[in-house]
């Protein structure tokens, strides 16, 4: 599914974040959004996920305006910057959470949760609580949890920023592989240019509340 923002405006308190922001991510694309801290990158993901409502303009998913749809009805997965894993649930229960909430049958919940934990190589850590996992493992649980509900779109908010270089490189590779295997549209937010170029097929630059430009990474390389 494609994502499109048309002439979106958003103000937080008295601080205007976006003004007439327009932006499009094509279906099945891994798109990177780059911008300095405090530019509202996370808010932009929140607008797409339905966690915030735009003051003006439209958010379109697959061409349909979803401004009035809650996050539960947008079929958008979200990997939060600090992973937002439920601290009282094991890795397995975290992954199963969305499936149970969607009313998926018990046996299917078990199968699917194991499948996605397997996909991120975490089967052995399935019974551990988030605080017993390393940063990289938490990241993978967050990914598996978001993917388990089989969203059409996956939003990733600085997913690799807390990780050390070696794990970051490995997860960059895994993310690309996941995108290739699942075909899900991914929008990745980062302030790291190298990461954006390595992962994204196209990179958009957010500055002063607008998309300054969008370039293909082929052109950058």
């Amino acid at each position: 599914m494609s994502i499109e923002l048309k002439h979106v405006a958003k103000t937080f308190g008295t601080r205007p974040l976006f003004h007439d922001l327009s932006f499009k991510v094509e279906q099945g694309e891994l798109h990177a959004l780059v911008g300095p801290s405090g530019e509202g990158k996370s808010t932009l993901l929140g607008l797409i996920a339905g966690l915030h409502a735009p003051d003006a303009g439209d958010v379109l998913i697959n061409g349909e305006c979803v401004n009035r749809l809650g996050p539960q009805r947008r079929k958008v997965g979200y990997v939060f910057q600090d992973y937002a894993l439920f601290p009282h649930l094991s890795a397995f229960e975290n992954v199963a959470y969305g499936l149970r909430a969607s009313g998926v049958e018990r046996r299917r919940v078990h199968e699917k949760s194991l499948h996605y934990l397997n996909l991120v190589n975490l089967n052995r850590e399935r019974d551990k609580l988030p605080q017993e996992l390393s940063g990289g493992q938490k990241q993978r649980v967050a990914l598996a949890r978001a993917l388990a509900t089989e969203p059409s779109i996956l939003l990733l908010d600085e997913p690799l920023s807390h990780l050390d270089a070696e794990i970051r490189e490995q997860l960059q590779f895994e993310l690309k592989e996941l995108q290739r295997k699942t075909g899900v549209t991914m929008l990745l937010v980062t302030h790291n240019m190298t990461e954006a170029v390595t992962l994204g097929r196209r990179v958009s630059f957010l500055r002063h509340g607008r998309i300054e430009r969008t370039v293909s990474t082929n052109a950058l390389v």
């Binding site: 929140g46 939060f80 937002a84 959470y97 969305g98 909430a101 969607s102 509900t149």
Partner: peptide
């Protein structure tokens, strides 16, 4: 963000 995560997981 835990509550937001829950909402994005169809809860």
């Amino acid at each position: 963000n835990l509550l937001a995560a829950s909402a994005t997981l169809n809860a």
